[in-house]
Design a protein around this nucleic acid. Structure first.
Lengths: 221, 221
DNA sequence: GTCTATAATTAGATAGAC
DNA sequence: GTCTATCTAATTATAGAC
C-alpha cells in the first residue's frame, strides 16, 4: 500500500473526510456485490475481473487498487455473504427446543434470498485447494460444529429425525438450499418459481416436518 | 466432417478395421473421462482444453479434431455420466412400493461413486444459458417428471414424507448427493470420509428413513 | 489421425499520466 | 483515486507438415 497522504494526515482511515470515505466505501461495496454475482454464476476461475468491474460501473484496474488481487476480492465477497447470514442466525438467545427449527427456517429463507452464498460454497466445496482450506478453517468448521451440536440436542430431546450427526450439515443444507442455488434450473423444470414467498414458506414448513418430526407445527398453513 | 476415406471404403464407422476403431474409441473415452474430471472441479469456463488433453495423454488440438469444440466435449461428458446413471436406474420392473426406495438408494450410491455428475449439474443449474437449456430439454425434464410421479405414487401409498412434489427433485437430490459433490469440503470438516462404504450405507439408510418413513426398513444395520 | 506452430482473443496485473 | 495503455501469460481454435 503506497499512500501519498501528507505526514500530518491522520493514519486512521476512519478519520478521513466523510465524503471521501463514503464514496470509497460505496465503490468497494459495489465491487463486492458485483463479484458475488459473478463468482456465484461462473465460479472463481470462470468469473473475470473485467466483468466484475463492469457490473460495478468501475474499471478493471480499480479491483487491484482496492483489493490487491482477485482472490482478496473473492474473500471480501464471502465475508459479506457470511455476515449477512450471521445477521439472521445470531438472534437473541432462544429456547433450545426451537433453536433447530429456527436454524432450518433461516437456512431456507436466506438460501432463497441470497442463493449466491450456497452457489459459491458448493462450487468451492468440490475443489480442494487454498480457497477451500481458507473457507473451512476460517468460517465453515465453527458453523458446522454449531449445527451438529444443535442437532444432537434436538435428537436428545426426541425432536429430530434419525440422521447421523456427521451427515446433518450436508443433508439439511442440500435439502434446504439446492433448489435456490439451482433456481434457474428449477424455473425451467417446473411451472412455478421456487423463490415465490408462498413456495419458500411451504418449503420451510416441509423441511421442519421432515427433519424435526417430533415438534408441534405452529407455522403451518 | 472431411473424411479422406476412398470412395469404395465402407461409410459406416463400425465396419472400419477393429484395431483402428479401438484406438479411436479409446482416445475419445480418455478425453471424455478427463473432461468429466476437469468440468466437475473447475466448471465449464474454468476447465481448460489443455488440461483436459493433458489428463488424457493427448495434445490439445485433438479435442477439436474428435469433438469439434469444447461444448461438444462437454455434452459427450454429460451423456457418458447420465448413461452410467441409467445403467443403475433402469433395473427390471419393480414393485411400485419399493421403486421409490430403490431410486433413493441409487441416487446416494451413484452420487458417492460418480460425484462428477452432480458437481456439473449443480454448476450449470446456477447459470441460465444454452448449456442449461440443453440439459433440461434433453435429459433433466423427463427424469424429474419420473421422480415426481414415483413420489406421488409413494405419497398415495402412505409411504412417503409430506414433501410437495415440486420440491422433491431438489430436496432428495440435495440431501442425497451434496455431501459427495462437496466431498473435499466434508473431508476437511469431519474426521471421516463420506465415501467410505459404511458411511454411504448409513447415509442411504438415513435417507430412506427420512423420506420414506412409512416403509419397513429391511437393509438397516 | 497426430503433432508443431500459430492465429486471435482474453485473462490478471502493472505503469504512469492526470 | 481514476483512467488509459500495456505487459505477460493463458485461452480456444485453426493451418499445414507428416
Amino acid at each position: 500500500m503506497t499512500l501519498s497522504t501528507p505526514a500530518t494526515a491522520p493514519t486512521d482511515e476512519r478519520a478521513l473526510p466523510a465524503s471521501r470515505d463514503h464514496s470509497r466505501a460505496q465503490l468497494r461495496a459495489r465491487l463486492v456485490q458485483s463479484a458475488i454475482t459473478q463468482f456465484a454464476t461462473h465460479g472463481f476461475e470462470g468469473a473475470s475481473t473485467r466483468a466484475i468491474a463492469e457490473g460495478a460501473g468501475a474499471h478493471q484496474p480499480q479491483i487491484n487498487y482496492h483489493f490487491d488481487n482477485k482472490e482478496n476480492l473473492w474473500r471480501a465477497a464471502l465475508e459479506q455473504l457470511l455476515s449477512e447470514l450471521d445477521d439472521l442466525l445470531s438472534e437473541p438467545s432462544q429456547a433450545s427446543d426451537v433453536a433447530m427449527e429456527t436454524t432450518i427456517r433461516v437456512l431456507v429463507t436466506f438460501g432463497s434470498r441470497r442463493p449466491e452464498l450456497n452457489q459459491i460454497l458448493i462450487h468451492e466445496g468440490a475443489n480442494p485447494g487454498p480457497r477451500l482450506a481458507w473457507l473451512v478453517d476460517t468460517h465453515l468448521r465453527t458453523r458446522s460444529q454449531q449445527l451438529r451440536s444443535a442437532w444432537e440436542h434436538a435428537v436428545a430431546a426426541g425432536i429430530a429425525a434419525d440422521v447421523p450427526s456427521d451427515l446433518v450439515y450436508h443433508t439439511v443444507l442440500g435439502a434446504s438450499a439446492l433448489v435456490y442455488a439451482n433456481a434457474p434450473e428449477a424455473r425451467l423444470l417446473f411451472a412455478t418459481d421456487p423463490t415465490d414467498p408462498d413456495q419458500v414458506q411451504a418449503h420451510a414448513d416441509a423441511m421442519v416436518r421432515l427433519f424435526l418430526p417430533g415438534i408441534t407445527q405452529r407455522n403451518q398453513q
